[in-house]
Amino acid sequence: MLKMAVLLSGSGRTLDNFHDRSRNGSMAGVIEVVIANVPTALGLDKAERYGYPAFHADDSETTNRILARYDIDVVCLAGYLKLYTPPPQLARSVVNIHPSLIPSFCGPGYYGHHVHQAVKDRGCTVSGCTVHFADERYDEGPIILQRCVALDDQDSIDDIAARVFAVECEAFPEAINLVDARGVEYFWRRVGK
Rank of each mutant, 00 (worst) to 15 (best):
3 K>G: 06
4 M>Y: 13
5 A>H: 05
7 L>P: 01
10 G>Q: 08
11 S>R: 15
14 T>V: 15
19 H>E: 15
24 N>D: 15
33 V>N: 10
35 I>Y: 06
36 A>M: 10
38 V>A: 12
38 V>G: 08
38 V>P: 03
45 D>P: 06
46 K>D: 02
47 A>M: 01
49 R>Q: 15
50 Y>N: 14
54 A>I: 08
56 H>R: 10
57 A>V: 08
58 D>T: 13
61 E>H: 14
62 T>Y: 09
63 T>I: 11
64 N>R: 03
64 N>Y: 02
66 I>A: 09
67 L>Y: 03
70 Y>E: 05
70 Y>C: 02
73 D>K: 11
75 V>A: 06
76 C>I: 15
77 L>Q: 07
80 Y>H: 10
88 P>T: 06
88 P>G: 07
92 R>V: 03
92 R>L: 05
100 S>Q: 04
101 L>E: 05
101 L>Q: 03
103 P>L: 05
106 C>S: 11
106 C>H: 00
107 G>R: 09
107 G>K: 10
108 P>S: 13
108 P>N: 12
109 G>E: 10
109 G>F: 13
111 Y>S: 03
116 H>V: 09
118 A>P: 03
119 V>S: 00
122 R>C: 12
132 H>D: 05
134 A>L: 06
142 P>H: 04
144 I>A: 05
147 R>Y: 13
148 C>S: 12
149 V>T: 06
151 L>E: 08
151 L>F: 01
152 D>L: 14
153 D>Q: 12
153 D>P: 09
159 D>K: 00
159 D>L: 01
160 I>A: 00
163 R>S: 12
163 R>N: 06
167 V>I: 15
168 E>M: 01
170 E>H: 12
173 P>E: 02
173 P>K: 04
176 I>P: 03
178 L>V: 01
184 V>W: 02
185 E>R: 05
186 Y>L: 05
186 Y>N: 08
189 R>V: 12
192 G>S: 08
